[in-house]
Design a protein around this nucleic acid. Structure first.
Lengths: 187, 187
DNA sequence: TTGATTTTTTGATATTTATCAAATGACAAT
DNA sequence: ATTGTCATTTGATAAATATCAAAAAATCAA
């Protein structure tokens, strides 16, 4: 069983036919390191599933590159607000290493939802999980200091420490490069 | 047309029968100022819609009361993570003034989803909107200083300034009471 | 390998905001 | 009006983190 069907089945036992239709409507996309999956200003047409590799989502603020999130193998990723509203994205998503993605277009997904109720439900459940995760991230990082935020990342996604640069990690953790460097030196 | 059906129709033109079933499965709840809608530790059984009034969601951290969100008339509210997972809530939700809520239980909602596909879709669309809002809140408050966060609140939900105490607003904006007081004095 | 370029670390200082303490103000009960 | 309580403001100081500058280390191209 592929990582994708495995992940989907974590949410819901999909009907054989729905799953089949879902898989048939998507396709594989290989993308090499540093290439962009989504670029600021364009509409996020696809929902991606990371079968292999990792990606980083970021935007520019005063010409500085600010990381919003890191995503790893087995996760869905897209510029959510753009994908949902089908309006231009304010974020970029790039491959942090050579990746193999599975992806499905917004249109295909919406069409599938018309026909397969359980797919829409799986998507709804996925959204719920992502919502909770975002809320927890927001609340629990609120009262953590720089060091605790770094320690949280180590707990939560240790792989990132190897895969991302200090600058990318620092902007994600909302601290300066220098502060992060000092925290690392003191551990 | 009630505020609730109006709000629902913003997302989707619901089938007459679905809407009827939805409304019939909920009920009205009047709750007076300072009373709790949801208490920490209990499972959030209901999804509420604020027909009249306003509520505040908060939790305790080191015995300090920390505001997570303020919600106004026309908004849905519950302890999302608790409602979704049906596990104990870490947050409290209290009425900031005498309120009239409409509410529907988790069980009723799930049962309705089995029968009325378009209700599940409306809920999915609602979730999407809330997800985007949370994401924007997270990203755009990240690089704002204390004063800008206060100004953002004034823009975004000016009513709150009247309805909430300085302490509640300060914890929501993630600053001390004193800092908020000084910001106000300097405007 | 070497030199150039970029990234990371280290040090000194500045800024923002928190904390603590005291003063003031608002309101309720007497 | 007076007292007590609680919320808010003001002032002084401390702590956390950013910023700026320079040194050291890593990476890369020729």
């Amino acid at each position: 069983m592929s990582k994708l069907t495995e992940t989907l089945n974590n949410f819901l036992d999909l009907d054989e036919k729905s799953l089949q239709a879902f898989l048939e409507n998507g396709h594989i996309l290989k993308i090499s390191k540093s290439k962009k999956l989504i670029e600021e200003g364009e509409v996020s047409e696809f929902l991606f599933f990371i079968q292999k590799g990792s990606v980083r989502s970021y935007y520019f603020r005063d010409d500085k590159d600010i990381t919003i999130s890191f995503s790893l193998e087995g996760e869905f990723i897209t510029s959510m607000s753009s994908f949902i509203t089908q309006t231009p994205s304010y974020e970029n998503i790039e491959a942090m290493e050579d990746c193999e993605m599975w992806c499905i277009s917004h249109k295909s997904l919406m069409d599938l939802f018309e026909e397969y109720h359980d797919l829409e439900r799986a998507y709804r459940l996925l959204l719920e999980q992502y919502y909770i995760r975002l809320e927890e991230h927001l609340i629990f990082s609120k009262f953590k200091n720089a060091r605790e935020r770094y320690e949280e990342l180590i707990q939560y996604k240790p792989e990132i420490i190897q895969k991302a640069s200090v600058g990318q990690i620092a902007s994600f953790l909302d601290m300066s490069i220098e502060t992060l460097s000092r925290i690392r030196a003191s551990l």
